[in-house]
Nucleic acid binder design. Structure first.
Ligand SMILES: [Zn+2]
Length: 409
DNA sequence: CGTCTTTGACCAGCGC
DNA sequence: GCGCTGGTCAAAGACG
């Protein structure tokens, strides 16, 4: 009996030991699997990015060929001092901020850059209306807000796993000239605010000049100290259009909706802006890429050198044009989208905010030294946004609060 | 009672 | 310096 007991005990112990070993091994394998999966993801992203880059280069070459033929016309225009300014702005990043950051020079800059975009990139977009709205939105003094510290920038880079084309020196240089990157989203919405998965706290409201609708200011409260802010304002011309401008980088993980987009947009956005940093050619790249990022859109993407800080504009108000979907593999790799069509994706109310959040983080982190870029991406969206908070007006307009005082400083 | 919104005050930048 | 404008602060109140 005693012997038997001992033998079963030792047997149990051996089994336990073995179990423990196996469990440890399993854990190890899990970990390894996780690492490998991460690596695979990264490789995939890099592949997508490279493919984008390649495509853009091909486009650039095409356009260059085209331009050589039209060189004389170009030179003539440049002599008229109309076209030449944009490339210079992109080259002299620091000077550019002083060239173009006052209100009076803003409009001419918009005009110039759009002419530039169009003539170089062959019929990229007419989008002057959009930029008029954007102009109203963005000539404010946000640039005086504090730049995020280096750690934050690096953290954001890591968070998004963005493959960077700008060398480290650019990031360092960028710290000196750091400006807030902004992502402006235009959607059709009756709600006072689009639901974007983040938590926001309203901290102010103003009547902006040139727009009877008040502009509301929100700050991200998903994490203590998150510097992300957003402005929400209705379009003066079409009050069904809600313009939401995001600014800054989240210091916390993005909500699932935003994360879903992040992987897909990171490569594209990085490409978009890395291409646009230093030259007219880059401007072209960015336009081309912006156009291809959301190929279902009826209008195309533009990039402009108008803003005192880089601004990506997502116009989700246009009617759909599903003729040319899936031009690029990264869109096919869109998480969970292998069976769905892009218009459905862009109609998702989460899409807007997710894309905005992702791009804000990405470009804010990886390419902070572009000072005068405006990227506009247009897609269709008739989403039904939900207001996450009641957002009353203290302006003298038609918003919800009948008791509003009508006074704004 | 804690959280959020409202809203007048305040501040900085800019043009004159 | 002054006024205008956009952005932020913070006290007071609303709300659950
Ligand atoms: Zn945040």
């Amino acid at each position: 009996m005693v012997d038997d007991d001992i033998s079963t005990d030792s047997k149990d112990e051996r089994v336990k030991l073995e179990f423990g070993v196996l469990q440890a091994e399993l854990e190890k394998l899990k970990e390894e699997n996780y690492k490998l999966r991460n690596m695979l993801d990264e490789v995939k992203r890099n592949y997508d990015t490279l493919q984008m880059h390649f495509a853009s280069l091909m486009q650039v070459r095409k356009v260059e060929d085209c331009n050589q033929e039209q060189d004389q016309v170009f030179e003539k225009k440049q002599n008229e001092n109309v076209e030449v300014l944009v490339p210079r702005q992109f080259m002299d990043l620091e000077l550019a901020t002083t060239n173009c950051d006052d209100e009076t020079s803003l409009s001419p800059c918009v005009g110039r850059s759009q002419i530039e975009s169009k003539s170089i990139a062959n019929n990229i977009e007419e989008g002057s209306k959009e930029f008029d709205h954007d102009k109203n939105e963005s000539h404010s003094g946000i640039e005086r807000m504090d730049s995020p510290p280096k750690e934050q920038v690096l953290a954001a880079i890591n968070n998004n796993n963005v493959p960077r084309f700008s060398p480290t020196t650019n990031v360092e240089q960028a710290e000196a000239t750091m400006r807030k990157t902004r992502v402006s989203v235009r959607t059709r919405s009756e709600a006072a605010q689009i639901s974007d998965g983040c938590q926001w706290r309203k901290y102010g409201q103003k009547l902006a000049k040139g727009n009877p609708c008040p502009r509301a200011y929100y700050r991200c409260t998903m994490a203590i100290g998150c510097p992300v802010r957003k402005q929400v304002q209705r379009c003066a011309e079409d009050r069904t259009i809600l313009v939401t401008t995001y600014e800054g980088n989240h210091t916390h993980p993005l909500p699932p909706a935003a994360m879903a987009m992040s992987n897909t947009t990171s490569a594209a956005a990085t490409m978009l802006l890395s291409g646009s940093m230093s030259s007219a050619e880059g401007l072209m790249n960015a336009n081309f890429l912006a156009r291809t990022m959301l190929p279902c859109s009826s209008s195309m993407a533009t990039i402009s050198a108008s803003a005192p800080f880089p601004t990506v504009t997502l116009d989700l108000t246009q009617p759909p044009n599903p003729s040319n979907q899936f031009q690029f593999p990264f869109l096919q790799n869109f998480p969970n989208s292998t069976t769905s069509l892009l218009p459905q994706i862009t109609a998702d109310p989460n899409f807007t905010a997710a894309l905005a959040a992702a791009i804000t983080s990405i470009i804010g982190a990886s390419l902070p030294n572009i000072n005068n870029n405006n990227v506009s991406i247009t897609a269709n969206n008739n989403s039904n946004e939900n207001a996450t908070s009641s957002n009353n007006s203290n302006g003298n307009n038609n918003m919800n609060n009948p008791n509003s005082s009508g006074k704004t400083s």
